[in-house]
Simulated scan of single mutants.
Amino acid sequence: MQTRIAGTTMPILEVTLSPGEHLIAEGGDVSWLTPGFGMETSTRFGSGGKGGFLSGLKRALGGGQLFLTDYTAPPQGGFVAFSAQLPGSIRELRIDRADNFMVQSGAYMCSTPDVEISVGLQKKLGAGIFGGAGVIFQRLSGDGTAWVQLAGEIVEYDLAAGQSMLIHPGHLALFRAEMPLEFASVKGIKNKFFGDSLLLAQVQGPGHIWLQSMTPAKLAAAIEPYLPEKPSSTSFGNDS
């Protein structure tokens, strides 16, 4: 298996597979591929070879899809390509028993068959932060390789034992799963629209964290004023 990441602002992940090799991805996320690939969709994929429907249900609760697709390379081999959904970058993660990761919901792109994708953390943070939807992290575990898409520019930090950092939850893109994570209300700071106290994620070292400069919520808020207004409903019939 060989990979190539092409592009800059909206990168492409191209994965070249040898005959018979497998790659797991969420259904419908593939952008293009060479002919001959076998494709099978099931709930059992993405569970690291352990479990079926219940594993898929846990994945769905973590913000992922219930069904994943297995792409099997044909006898001559071939490649599949995935496009980033937001401006940013694509990172490769090597996963084993000692290296598990927590990634923001929606960041997972694809993985080798023995990687398990499950719900890692769900937190209701109130309307002032995420429109009432809260924040969800998926856990990547098992044994293999996964690729994730992170939004905007990426800044990485190594936190030593005893060190911690306060982060807006939307900017915490990826962190090592063994790092403790709590949510703290910052006193004296009020949300200008909803009056909620500002809640920040507090990550404790030791471990590595990846922070993203862009969040989907802030991007949506930035472009919303430029979107065409939805047409109002029109009633038909004769006026009396």
Rank of each mutant, 00 (worst) to 15 (best):
T9P: 00
L125N: 03
R176E: 15
P206A: 03
P74N: 04
F137Y: 15
G205L: 04
V115P: 11
F137T: 07
G51M: 08
C110H: 06
L23H: 09
G170W: 09
E116R: 15
I90P: 00
K50E: 13
G20L: 06
G77Y: 03
Q65N: 14
G144I: 08
S83V: 00
F82G: 12
G7Q: 06
Q122T: 15
P35I: 02
Y108N: 08
L198Q: 13
I154K: 06
G205N: 05
F175P: 04
N191H: 14
A220K: 13
F82I: 12
M10R: 09
G38V: 13
L93S: 08
M102Q: 12
G78K: 01
P206R: 01
H168D: 15
L66T: 11
I5F: 03
M165N: 02
L66Q: 08
Q65K: 15
Y226P: 02
G142P: 13
P216E: 00
A107F: 02
Q138L: 08
H22G: 01
L227G: 07
P75I: 02
I223F: 12
A177T: 00
S118C: 04
P228V: 09
D70Q: 13
L33F: 14
A220T: 08
D239V: 14
G152Q: 05
R97I: 00
F137E: 06
S111L: 08
F183N: 12
P87A: 03
Q204W: 09
N238Y: 05
D70M: 08
P169L: 07
Q104M: 11
D96Y: 02
F53I: 14
R59V: 09
Q163N: 10
V80G: 10
A177D: 07
S105T: 13
S89D: 11
G152L: 05
T3V: 11
G195R: 10
E156G: 01
S197E: 13
G144V: 06
A98P: 01
G131H: 01
L23A: 07
T112R: 03
P180C: 04
M1V: 03
E182D: 14
V135H: 06
C110P: 11
I223P: 00
S55W: 04
A220M: 13
S18Q: 15
A25H: 10
G152W: 10
T34V: 05
Q138Y: 06
T41I: 14
S185N: 08
L150D: 07
L23S: 08
G88V: 09
P19V: 07
M109W: 03
L159R: 01
P75T: 00
E224L: 14
L200T: 15
E21N: 09
V115H: 11
F37N: 10
G144K: 01
A160G: 07
A25F: 07
G134C: 05
E40M: 12
G195H: 07
S213A: 12
G27P: 00
T145M: 09
G7P: 07
G162R: 06
A177V: 00
K58G: 09
L93G: 07
F194G: 14
A107T: 04
R4P: 00
Q204N: 10
L200Y: 02
L200E: 10
A6E: 13
I129F: 14
A161W: 02
G20E: 10
Q204A: 15
Y157L: 15
G162P: 09
